[in-house]
Design a binder for these strands. Structure first.
Lengths: 213, 213
DNA sequence: TGGCTGATTATTATATAAACTGTTCAATCG
DNA sequence: CGATTGAACAGTTTATATAATAATCAGCCA
């Protein structure tokens, strides 16, 4: 949890700021408003956070931490095959991204603003998701349905292939169901790719298609 | 060719405008500058184009027409298998997008501005590319390497899967070679998916993975 | 002394005025 | 009379002044 090492006062500040960020957005909430909500002075805020942007960073860290936790629940779901988990993962990720974009626009806007000034936060987040994905892949490799030799690398490739459905920049172009159908199409193809590799692997042959131009 | 039905004077206007768009960008070139370049009055421009934005639209139509023509050359390349053509298509598309973004920034900026006000232009362009892709798929289906029953739909799915590598919004996050490697990874997986389907098809069985949750 | 304050400062945002630019159209030209 | 012009208009952008805000820090309090 990102708030683990936080002072009690810091949590109070983060809470007050989060509420305002969600309702009014990042730029429209002022440090003195946050200070008022916490019954303290503006100067004191800086004893707990180096800057306003750092409060925002913690805010999205919490949001994204929850997101990753939700995605991780897919891994732990009982009675589902690795293939099903892979599909669940991407459909859930798409759903989260789509809904957050549409009914928490301020949170989305804040994320964008933060990422443009702190790009490494986005990378951390992507790699956290990648680790969840890699777990699913490892599971599939273990039970023979996937044949993945480098799970983290393959996770990155899958994240690339699903990018269209997790990048809010293009969500306005299509409605939910149409996009979900297309995402299922991509997953179908990817899973068939894994099936092919698993079958090849069983016969002791190398993968069929390798990049040679 | 998009300029086919154009008056000679209209072509002159388009030429003058294009030069300025490329050097200074859309917003920084004025109608009177374009008119001056053509030795005519501003009012006369409106006899050939309804508005400044329409000149810009024609400008990117030409650009994108060239792009699609380049991609189409992949289809006509002799001595390449459908699988190779599929890879060529995406690597070339990525290369074009990446290079245009980095060494013709004004053209990219103009495209973005236009698309935000004329979204249908982007859709036309995507579907033109999709038709090229569908040709490759049909070819692969014909020679038994792909087993694609609905080529246009599958083309759309492949465009989705390759979106990460054609969307300039994220190009700054990684250098060319790293992205190209990842793209090859996606293509490898897709091609293996096709191999699986082709093999299944030969045995008279339905595709393995279908979206059922 | 460690935690806190709030006036102060440098920066950023907002509001307003001035200049510019896309578009139109009555008048002109060939 | 059709093609062209350029002044006029409305809308937008830019420049400037004004206000608001993030961040600081010398002093205060418990």
């Amino acid at each position: 949890m990102p708030t683990e090492n936080l002072d009690e006062t810091a949590k109070q500040i983060l809470n007050a700021a989060s509420r305002r960020f969600l309702y009014y957005g990042y730029k429209k909430t002022t440090m003195s408003e946050i200070a008022d909500d916490c019954n303290m002075s503006t100067g004191n805020l800086y004893r707990y956070f180096p800057s306003k942007l750092d409060i925002a960073e913690m805010f999205v860290r919490v949001l994204r931490g929850e997101q990753v936790a939700t995605l991780r629940s897919v891994v732990d779901a009982p009675g589902r095959t690795p293939s099903q988990k892979l599909r669940d993962f991407f459909l859930l990720k798409f759903k989260i991204a789509y809904e957050r974009f549409h009914d928490k626009p301020k949170a989305y806007e804040l994320s964008s603003e933060l990422i443009s000034e702190r790009p490494k936060v986005a990378l951390e987040w992507e790699s956290a998701e990648g680790r969840v994905l890699a777990e699913i892949l490892a599971e599939g490799d273990a039970d023979g349905s996937f044949a993945v030799d480098n799970a983290p690398a393959m996770a990155k490739i899958l994240q690339d292939a699903g990018y269209r459905f997790t990048s809010p920049a293009v969500f306005h172009e299509g409605d939910y169901d149409a996009l979900a159908t297309e995402l299922n199409g991509v997953i179908d193809l990817v899973l068939d790719g894994f099936s092919w590799r698993a079958a090849r692997h069983q016969h002791g042959k190398p993968p069929a298609n390798v990049a040679v131009t």
